[in-house]
Design a protein around this nucleic acid. Structure first.
Lengths: 176, 176
DNA sequence: GTTAGTGCAAACCTTTTGCAGCTCT
DNA sequence: AGAGCTGCAAAAGGTTTGCACTAAC
């Protein structure tokens, strides 16, 4: 199903340029979840002439080639995308919405989920991602305090991305 | 943990305006996964003066209030977000990258996954989403043909988001 | 009447595109 | 040599912000 399932990227005409080596090294070595801008900043240290556009083009190529995966991390910090080397094992990303820490969860349910979706729909899965947002053990305590404080200074409410208790849409409609 | 776990949105000063009624109705009634732009287009039919910005502000409020969930649907068609009324039951979104059809998968693995993440990390989950991209049963056949055709007209390769066989990053580095 | 919400225009941020020149093979 | 890749500038796409006016309660 691939373009050339026996061929290499090189056979498809992909060249290994100096810029690509730098970017590949960075993605590989840091192991972190970098977004295009950070990757660009880091790459510029090694080659000040390297352009932001090249970063985007390289990431796009790597994504299309299945070498990296693109994440959103629940947009905990804007709408940019994050990238990581594709691992053999599926995993979910667990993002703390307060401190931004990202945990990775490997486990059987992910594997079962994939199997079930494939068989249930006869679907051919190419990509999948599970992202979870909330508060990490450490931030839960801190968060409680912040909310308490906010109660005393209502102006802060708008700024805080405070979660309101779940209620159905219709419940809101009934407000009127 | 919520701002006001006993209170209503209204008690927080949220007003039910004509514009909001229109938008809430649309999200609720269509049941589809609409993005801001489509929602705006539909809303304009009911109130031609309604502004795009109001759509964004309303969606943001509903999201913060936990009334709707934001999806990416694997960006199968750009970088916009899609919205759906938050359901009681978790589900994964299965998106065909060729025809764009979106299936919803409900199942035990999702529930187990959530439980395990909570207990494993002591994490408090507020949001979570699982999105899967690939080819639906119907498109798998069509896709195979397209790839076959592409092989004959190499220029088409760049345009086609063709998947290249998985290989490690290092394999690419070794190209040089 | 007060405060929240709206519309408009303009800004913003992230990502993409067009094109001339450069470089890998 | 020649296709592929880069840098630069400019545009695009999606979303947010500032501000004066309007409407909900």
């Amino acid at each position: 199903m691939a373009l050339d399932s026996q061929g290499s990227l090189r056979e498809q005409g992909v060249r290994l340029t100096r810029q690509r080596q730098i970017l590949l090294d960075l993605i590989d070595q840091t192991g972190a979840h970098l977004d295009a801008e950070r990757l660009y900043q880091m790459a510029k240290e090694r080659d000040p002439k390297l352009n932001r556009v090249t970063v985007y083009r390289t990431l796009k190529m790597l994504k299309a080639g299945g070498l990296v995966d693109e994440l959103d991390l629940m947009h905990y910090s804007g709408d940019q995308h994050y990238y990581e080397t594709r691992l053999k094992q599926e995993h979910a990303h667990v993002v703390c919405l307060r401190c931004g820490k990202v945990e990775e969860f490997f486990g059987e349910p992910l594997h079962k989920l994939r199997k079930q979706i494939e068989s249930h729909f006869g679907f051919q899965i190419l990509l999948s991602r599970t992202e979870v947002g909330g508060y990490c053990a450490h931030c839960q305590t801190l968060r409680a305090r912040e909310v308490e404080d906010a109660r005393r200074t209502p102006e802060a409410l708008k700024r805080a991305a405070v979660r309101v208790p779940r209620k159905s849409r219709r419940a809101l409609a009934r407000l009127g």
